[in-house]
Design a protein around this nucleic acid. Sequence first.
DNA 1: ACCATAAATGACACCCGGTGCCAATGCAAT
DNA 2: ATTGCATTGGCACCGGGTGTCATTTATGGT
Lengths: 222, 222
Amino acid sequence: MTGLDHPAEPDRPLGRPRATTHDELEAIGMDLFGRRGYENVSVQQIAEAAGVSRRTFFRYFPTKSDLPWGDFAQEVDRLRSTLALVPDQQPLMAALRRAVVEFNRVPAEAVEQHRARLGLILSEPELIARSLLKFQLWREVIAEFAGRRLGMPGSSFLPELIGEIALSAAVAAYREWIPHPSADLPTLIDTAFEAMTDLEGLEHGSAATLAQRIALPDGRSP
Amino acid sequence: MTGLDHPAEPDRPLGRPRATTHDELEAIGMDLFGRRGYENVSVQQIAEAAGVSRRTFFRYFPTKSDLPWGDFAQEVDRLRSTLALVPDQQPLMAALRRAVVEFNRVPAEAVEQHRARLGLILSEPELIARSLLKFQLWREVIAEFAGRRLGMPGSSFLPELIGEIALSAAVAAYREWIPHPSADLPTLIDTAFEAMTDLEGLEHGSAATLAQRIALPDGRSP
DNA sequence: ACCATAAATGACACCCGGTGCCAATGCAAT
DNA sequence: ATTGCATTGGCACCGGGTGTCATTTATGGT
């Protein structure tokens, strides 16, 4: 007995090696969706293209509609950590605004991929449907934060409402972004939050100036 | 030749009479869902209980998950008509608030049924998913109204954002209502809109007073 | 009475997403 | 070689949803 008898698996844990990966299936699937449309691609076809059985596909993804979401739970964790680090003196909505804006800033080389995902998710009915389930996690994180700040459970009315509203801002920005690729997503989200803070004052005039702001490509004011 | 030769079908248009109705299937289905849970009831079983074939069920409802929604398109039309009658001098958000509050006022005898629907829709994952598709119509109506008011297409950023936000308020209220049957739904919605108008000022103190307001059963202030 | 017409139903075959089950596979440690 | 183990593949099965076609049940005209 050496004391260090089992060498704590270097890279290969044990058993039969995997025939594919989460990422590979995702890449193949997204490619096929882009080419032929979501509904016209069956799980069978994705599996075949990956050289794997249909049954195996479902061991990597719970459903077909989970494919475009990547590891969304992990993304949500990122949001949670960001919010955990917000200093207490920062006002609630300002903090949320900053956090959500930053959460949606993706590295330049990943922008196209991100747009493809969002475009699919927001256009295909089955994926639109699925999105509400996915965003539920997201909302809970926001509500949890708001609850801490307001001194009440994250599940109570106001925190939940704030979660809904923050998600609204983000989704409205996503929808605007898809047909306007030249726009800057974080800026769109920031604008959405800004508009929300002055809903009462919204009439012909003020709306026009705001609308003009977001029309600037890239969003950096001159 | 009488000039009035074909008598414009009194009640029976022609052909084989229907074996069931939209409403009957809905009633039977909702009953079964309530008894055994949504997932544990197959379309087959609903059809059998209605004395009709499975194929026929799908001639009355496009999908199983449409069943709890009744004739939602018609409800949305009601909202549209309400908004069309709003006087122009009424501020945008105030008008929306009133319209959405009134839209959600149901006659006392229908409250329980309405609660059952909403409870199902907000708790069963498949129905949660479906809800986004359904509410899309709802949002479009709001966005269309906002667009008219702001002098821009209903499909532009701000109107869409306003649609999202109004829906958020309503949904947050629905979710609060389900576990608190004694609350008054229109009042909850009104409160949600009110809270949204002062998001910036939301901190410990103000939130507590608001939270207290909605805790009053029935919502009529003393 | 008889026949055309028309609308709705029912039966059947089929596709796809998703799941439970179990035997086969491929690698590592002994 | 043998054992242990995770993963895979195959298969049967369920439920939702659709396309197709013959059948049913009425009405209206002759």
